[in-house]
Computed example of a mutant assay.
Amino acid sequence: MLFVSIEIDVKGVSKSYGKTKVLQGINLQIQPGQIYGLIGPSGSGKTTLVKLIVGIDSADEGQVEVFGKSMPNLELLQDIGYMAQADALYLELTGYENLAFFASLYPMKKTELTKRIAYAAELVKLTGELKKKVAAYSGGMKRRLSLAIALVHDPQILILDEPTVGIDPELRLSIWNELMHLKNEHQKTILITTHVMDEAEKCDIVAMVRSGALLKSGSPADLKAAYGVRQLEEVFLQAGREQP
Rank of each mutant, 00 (worst) to 15 (best):
Leu179His: 07
Ala226Phe: 02
His195Val: 02
Ala225Pro: 03
Arg230Val: 02
Glu185Gln: 14
Tyr227Trp: 12
Glu178Ser: 11
Leu182Cys: 03
Asp204Ser: 07
Pro220Asp: 05
Lys188Asp: 06
Ile167Met: 09
Ile175Ala: 01
Met180Gln: 13
Glu201Ser: 06
Lys216Trp: 00
Thr193Arg: 10
Ile175Trp: 01
Lys224Glu: 01
Leu171Ser: 11
Tyr227Phe: 13
Leu171Phe: 05
Pro169Trp: 10
Ile190Asn: 06
Gly212His: 13
Asp168Ile: 12
Thr164Val: 10
Lys216Glu: 14
Glu199Asn: 07
Ser211Lys: 14
Ile175Cys: 02
Thr193Ser: 15
Met197Cys: 01
Arg210Tyr: 13
Glu185Tyr: 07
Val165Ile: 12
Val229Ala: 03
Gln231Pro: 00
Glu233Ile: 00
Asp204Glu: 06
Ile192Phe: 04
Glu185His: 15
Glu234Ser: 10
Met208Phe: 01
Gly212Cys: 09
Ile190Gly: 08
Glu185Asp: 14
Asp198Thr: 08
Lys183Phe: 13
Ile167Ser: 11
Pro220Lys: 02
His181Phe: 05
Leu173Cys: 09
Leu191Lys: 04
Val196Glu: 14
Asn177Glu: 14
Asn184Ser: 13
Leu191Trp: 03
Leu215Asp: 06
Val209His: 04
Cys203Leu: 03
Asp222Ile: 05
Asn177Ala: 11
Lys216Gln: 13
Ala200Val: 07
Lys188Ser: 10
Val165Phe: 04
Val209Asn: 07
Leu173Phe: 09
Gly228Ser: 02
Ser217Val: 08
Gly228Met: 03
Met197Leu: 15
Gln187Phe: 07
Arg230Gln: 10
Ala226Ile: 05
Trp176Ser: 08
Glu234Asn: 10
Val206Thr: 01
Met208Tyr: 03
Lys183Leu: 12
Glu201Lys: 06
Glu178Gly: 09
Ala225Asp: 10
Gly228Gln: 00
Ser211Tyr: 08
Leu171Val: 07
Leu223Cys: 11
Glu170Ser: 11
Glu178Asn: 11
Ala221Lys: 04
Lys188Gly: 13
Arg230Gly: 08
Trp176Asn: 06
Leu182Phe: 11
Leu171Lys: 06
Glu199Ile: 04
Asn184Lys: 14
Asn177Lys: 14
Thr164Met: 10
Ala213Cys: 15
Ala213Gly: 11
Thr194Asp: 13
His195Ser: 10
Lys188Val: 10
